[in-house]
Structure formats: C-alpha cells, structure tokens
Amino acid sequence: MLFLTWRSVARAIFSVAAALWLSPAFAHAVCGDRIFPATLGIDDPGVGDELALPTLTSQPQGSDGTREFDATFSWTKTILPGLGLSFSDGGAWLRPGGYGWQALDTELKYNFMCLAQHEFMASAGFDVSWGRTGTAAQYSPFNTYSPILDVGKGFGDLPVSLNILRPLAITAEISEAIPGQSWTDGSQNPTTLNWGFTVQYSLPYYNSHIGQISSDFLRRLIPVTEFAFSTPIANVPSGSQITTGTIQPGVIYEGDTWQLAVEALIPINSASGRNVGAVAELHFFLDDIFPNSLGKPISKWGQP
C-alpha cells in the first residue's frame, strides 16, 4: 500500500510540475564572480529552483554482463533562500532484468556558505532514498539515509599573473549512504561512502575575465571531468570491500536559462563495469525561467 502511495506521490509531483510549466530547470549556483554549473556525477554546491529533465544514462556494462539504461529527472524547489527540497526519480531498463521504476529520492539541502571574494561555496544536505517506491529490479524494501556535504571553489582569486588558471574551479561531494535495514533476505546491506569531485574550466569565465572569445558557441562551453566513487565502509559482505566508480570527461554548454551536459562514463576497475558508458542531461534554470513565480523561494524569510 505504501508502495503505491509513494509512487503516486512521485508521479503526481512530476505531472503537476510539467502541467504548471515547472519546466525543467536547474538553478544557478552563483558565488561572487563564479557560476558553478550543474554537474552529473556529483551535485553542485548551490541550491536553487531547477529541473533536470531528462537525464539519460547508458551505464557501462556491469561486471556480470548486465546492461542498464536510465531515464530520470530531478526537480528542486526552494522553500527559503538557500534551502531547497529536491525530488528525483525515473525509470531503469535492465538487460536482463526488464524495466523498473527507481526509488523516489528526496534531498533537503541548505547552502550555508558563500565567500564571494574567494568563490567558495558550501552546502549540506540530507537525502532519503525511499524504500518500497521502486519496482521490479529497482525495488528496495528499506529507506537509505545520506547526509551530504557539497563544496565548490573557483580560482578567480588567483593573481593576475596566473590569469590562465582563474577560470578553473573544483567542486566536491561526500556522503554516507546508510541503509535503514542491515540485512535483507540473509544478505548484508553495506553502508557506503559516496565521494567525488569535479575539475572544470569555464570558458564563460575566461571570456568575461581574461580574454574575449569571439565564438558565441565556444564562450558558453565548460569542459569538465568528474570523478565519482563509492566505497563500502561498514557491514560489508566478505569480498565486496572494493571502491567502484567512474571517471567522467565531458563538456557543458551553458545557455541563458538552460544547460546541456554530455559526459563519458569510464569505469575505474572491473568491479565498476566494462566498456564505456555515457550520460547526457538537460537542465533548466527555473529561477530564470519563472523568476517571479515558480522560480523563487516559497518564503523570502532569512533573505539578506
């Protein structure tokens, strides 16, 4: 019953979002001169009204030969300035395994720091992957709880003599995924440390701070490489104490109210998969698309 309820809620939110033109958007994470783009492997350090729709992922072939394709979305609504609640869900196609709806994922996230002069931004969040909201192979009978820390640092504060490095930025994320149930059907559910970082070079930043780029196309690109890893740290079944993850080189194109990102998914070891996968994501910045309605916080309480 609960399973049906959560799925209904997730679908209702998705449908209402579309119907109300909560069209896809991902909010800008702006700190000082720096705009951190939305990234795919790990989250950016900002909080804002945004929607990623769709995120299409062709996972690297699993070490057991399984193929997986995901089509997901994520919508974030700001409640207060700097405080947002996101909803993520979507479908997964496994071969073998068939289609399944993924577990509903929610995250309450607060942007607690922006040092504008140093382009340093930090946010803390608490994510819940809701049990019994997935279907088929995506079904999990228990919730998973994840405290999360996201940080970002732009290097615009470097001296002018290092101008070429000033468009660089790094972001990082660390979270601990704690299953709400230690054992399921005789199998251990490990606690994992999910961690990663990105290295990005912003040509928009170069264009506005270092030297003018004549090409309208080039000056909107952000080459990026993401590193996303998962390490079991507790309640780990014997033989499973191995870090898995992907290295994700790619590029982000920044539009005025949206962005498009495409990245390769390169497994770091055989336990992470075989071959190379790919992920693409379209983001919409709701704070820009609907600045006076759906793209602003529900309450301005606490706004400086």
Binding site: F14, W21, P54, T257
Partner: peptide, 26 residues
C-alpha cells in the same frame, strides 16, 4: 515512462520568454 518524459520535455521547450543572470558577453 518515455512518453511522460517526452511530454514534460515538450512543456519545457515551449516555456514563456524568460530572463536570466546577466553574463558579460563582450
């Protein structure tokens, strides 16, 4: 699910005129 996503995406692309952060172009 594909149809649902495609439908929502269609809404997105016909979103009304919008404004954004003013970034320096030239």
């Amino acid at each position: 699910p594909v149809v649902r996503i495609a439908a929502a995406l269609a809404f997105a692309f016909v979103a009304p005129a919008a404004f954004a952060h003013a970034q320096l172009e030239k």
